[in-house]
């Protein structure tokens, strides 16, 4: 059980303009601006839930994860995760969590992966039996046996990410934080990682909190979305509910050989290229068939497709809605 209540965090950021003169001035007196990274963030996540934590860059996602994993101390507010306050009972708390930072490795760079695993076993004081069982299971499900003896620096990004995830699960954590776990991975690796996370959640009941910019991650993994922008939680709901809310918009793409498209209420041009154009249709104003009639009335259309909003577009429209 994860409960955050009124978490606030402010950072002091040094500020100066460019140029030599300013740089010299900054040596003696520095100006600071206070940046409020998190404003009164509250939410509750139950055991075994998978939650996608989304928001644009700099919205406060990483800060929240860092507070929940005991790295940062918030200015005010409470956070209780399975009975621990992360920044107060740090050592007890982190025994129960696994953290994967997509951009930072936790493996020892120059030694074979298996050595890193064994060192982690000692750091977390995992009993030998549990370690063996977990290691075997992880190696099998993440297909690591081939790469265990390779130094981490020689692994491809996809291989490394699989090792990172395994490394964060060796001690059977109840909560898993994934900070952009699929960043930079190819399609095959992405799908493998997603598949594994889903399986872990299903079979071990691990609570998963995932931040990502890849909406396919969210679509494939999570039912619940937390949207954060400018340090505030803007939305907390299921992907399905969001979709319903934005379902009134359809996208129509047409390919045409000649002709023009008249302007009409409820039809907004999105992109236009020679021979190809796309439009957003507001179904509150006119139906899809009406829109098609309008669009095909004056042009020689060769192909036409209608799409609902993808998760990607959903998020874009959310960001627009909240002006973040």
């Amino acid at each position: 059980m994860i409960e955050l209540q009124g978490i606030t965090k402010t950072f002091r950021v040094a500020r100066r303009s460019g140029g030599m003169k300013e740089a010299v001035k900054a040596l003696f007196r520095r100006e600071y601006t206070l940046v409020q990274a998190l404003k009164d963030v509250s939410f509750t996540i139950g055991d075994g839930e998978m939650v996608g934590y989304i928001g644009p860059n700099g919205a406060g996602k990483s800060s929240t994860i860092k507070i929940m994993s005991g790295i940062l101390t918030p200015d005010s507010g409470t956070c209780v995760i399975n009975g621990c306050t992360p920044w107060k009972d740090r050592k007890r708390h982190v025994k129960n969590i696994g953290v994967v930072f997509g951009q930072r490795s936790q493996l020892w760079w120059d030694v074979p992966v298996i050595d890193s695993f064994e060192l982690l076993r000692d750091i977390y004081r995992v009993p030998e039996g549990t370690y063996k069982r977990n290691c075997e299971e992880l190696c099998e499900t993440l297909e690591l046996s081939e790469i265990l003896r390779t130094p981490a620096r020689q692994l491809s990004l996809g291989q490394r990410m699989r090792c990172e995830i395994a490394a964060s699960l060796l001690h059977d954590p109840e909560v898993l934080f994934l900070d952009e776990p699929t960043i930079g991975l190819d399609a095959v690796s992405k799908i493998a990682v997603r598949e594994f996370i889903r399986r872990r959640n299903r079979e071990h009941g691990t609570t998963v909190i995932l931040t990502t910019h890849d909406m396919q991650d969210i679509e494939a993994l999570t039912e619940r979305i937390l949207l954060i922008g400018k340090g505030e939680i803007l939305l907390d709901g299921s992907l399905e509910a969001l979709r319903q809310r934005h379902a009134k918009v359809r996208k129509i793409t047409v390919e045409y050989s000649s002709g023009t498209f008249p302007e009409a209420a409820g039809i907004t041009p999105l992109e236009a290229a020679p021979g190809r154009a796309s439009f957003a249709v507001d179904t509150d104003v006119l139906s899809v068939s009406q829109a098609i009639a309008v669009l095909t009335g004056n042009a020689e259309v060769t192909d036409l497709s209608v799409q609902g909003a993808s998760a990607e577009e959903l998020v874009v429209s959310l960001y627009e809605e909240f002006h973040i």
Binding site: R92, V94, V99, F101, R104, I123
Partner: peptide, 14 residues
């Protein structure tokens, strides 16, 4: 600077 200290803080040792 390279974030290694974050790593250290999420591990259950001093």
């Amino acid at each position: 600077a390279n974030g290694q200290f974050d790593r250290i803080l999420v591990r259950p040792r001093s």
